[in-house]
Amino acid sequence: MAVIEVTDLRKRYADLTVLDGVSFSVEEGEIFGILGPNGTGKTTTVECVEGLRRPDGGSIRVLGLDPVEDARRVREQIGVQLQQTQLPENIKVWEALDLYASFYAAPRDWRELLEEWGLADKRNARFGKLSGGQKQRLFIALALVGNPRVAFLDELTTGLDPQARRATWELIKQVRAGGVTVVLVSHFMDEVEELCDRVAVFNRGRVVAIDTPAGLAGGEHRMRFTVMTGEMTGVEGLPGVTGVSREGNRMVVTGTGDFATAVTAHLARHQVLVSDLRIDKRTLEDAFTALTGRSFD
C-alpha cells in the first residue's frame, strides 16, 4: 500500500519554478530516499507533503489524506525532523520529549525513546549543552514521540562526525524495523546507498529517476588492467562485456554479471599477461552524474 502519493506537484516562488511536476509514491514500511544536490526542490517537496507549504498544482495524499485540508489528522500520524530547527536553549531533554508527547493523542512512552536513542544519561541536560550528535538524536526522538506511521528526516546526518553518522544509520534501520515508513532527504550518496530501499533522484525541480540504489547504479562493473605481453583480441564478443576501450596498453572493459571471469579466462587462453588489474563497481555517484549531467556537490 502506498502511504504517500505525490502526483505532478508544482510550486513557484515569484518567477522561480522550484517544483516542475514531481511525482512519486512511497510504500508502507520502506525507507524512501529523496536525493539531489542542494536547491533542487527536495526540501520544498517534503514540506508540501508535510503540509507546511501549499502546492500551486498537483495532488498529494498522505495516508489517504490531503496534508492541507486534513492537516490535523495527517499531523497526528507523521513525525518530522526539520532541517535547521532548534529548541529553546534552556529546555531539558526530558521536558522536550514530555512536551512533544503531550501534543499527540496516542504518543509513545518518551522514557523508552530516551533509552533507545541513548539519551537516558542526558535526561536532565539542557538543550544548549548537548553535543551535535545528541541534539540530532533528540530531534529524531521528537519526530518519533507521537508514534507516527511515517517519519520524515531531512538531512539528518549533516554536521555529524563519521562515527556519529554510522551510529545514526543503525538507529534509522531500527526505526524501519519498528514498522515506521521513513522518508529520508539527503544529499549524501553513501547515506542513501546504505539506508534506502528506493530513491527518487531530484534535479532542477523534477524527479529524474526512481529505483533501488543498486538499480540506479546499474549492474555494470568496470575492469581496468595494463597489458604486459601479448596481443588482446576478441574481448568485445565475450558474454557480458558491454564495452572495451584502450589507451596505449591501458585497457578498460565494462560489463555485467560474470564478465570478469570470462575476460580473465580469455586472456589466459591467449597468453596475454596483464598487471594492475582492478575491478570497480559503478556507484550511485556515477549514476547521478549520468542522470543529471552534473557532478555532486
Partner: peptide
Amino acid sequence: TYRERGILRRLSVTPV
C-alpha cells in the same frame, strides 16, 4: 528567537 530557532515552524508539523 522562537521564530529564528524554527520552534514555531517545528510546532506547525505537530497537531498543536
